[in-house]
């Protein structure tokens, strides 16, 4: 890394200031890929559980979709946390608020669209 010194005196110093709160970066290093294996096993288990719920009709239809969605969100969190090293950053982890906003907007787009497209005009 030839530019090591220049880079540390580089003009982008602000990003290095570690800010407090949940935006502070976390770094994990491990000698054995234990986390990865755990993540794989858990994701398989969650997928098969969701599949089992549907294939064997273990739940009434009304709550089934909710449970499946909850399982999906758990699994997404697993992927983010374990595989995607969500909180790794240099300096403030600015991608976290942006991702949170993305999630918020994404849920808003889906939820509101469904609500709007129900056409609940009551004149009759």
């Amino acid at each position: 890394m030839d530019g090591e010194e220049q880079i540390d005196t580089a003009p982008t110093g602000h990003g290095d200031e570690v800010e407090v709160g949940f935006l502070a970066p976390r770094i994990h290093a491990a000698p054995f890929p234990g986390m990865q294996i755990t993540g794989y096993v858990l994701s398989m288990a969650l997928t098969l559980a969701a599949f089992g719920l549907v294939a064997y009709h273990w739940l009434p239809l009304s709550s089934l979709v909710t449970v499946i969605l909850v399982l999906a969100f758990i699994q997404a969190a697993l992927q983010l946390g374990i595989f995607m090293h969500l909180r790794e950053a240099r300096g403030t982890a600015w991608h976290l608020p942006v991702l949170a906003l993305a999630l918020f907007v994404g849920l808003g787009i889906v939820g509101f669209s469904i609500w709007i497209m129900l056409f609940k005009s009551g004149v009759s």
Binding site: V105, I116, F119, K120, S121
Partner: peptide
């Protein structure tokens, strides 16, 4: 992000929306 329906209030989405 939460105001876009005001461009088409006339689509009959209902008074709640």
């Amino acid at each position: 992000y939460g105001v876009w329906v005001h461009h088409f209030f006339e689509m009959g989405a209902g008074p709640g929306v």
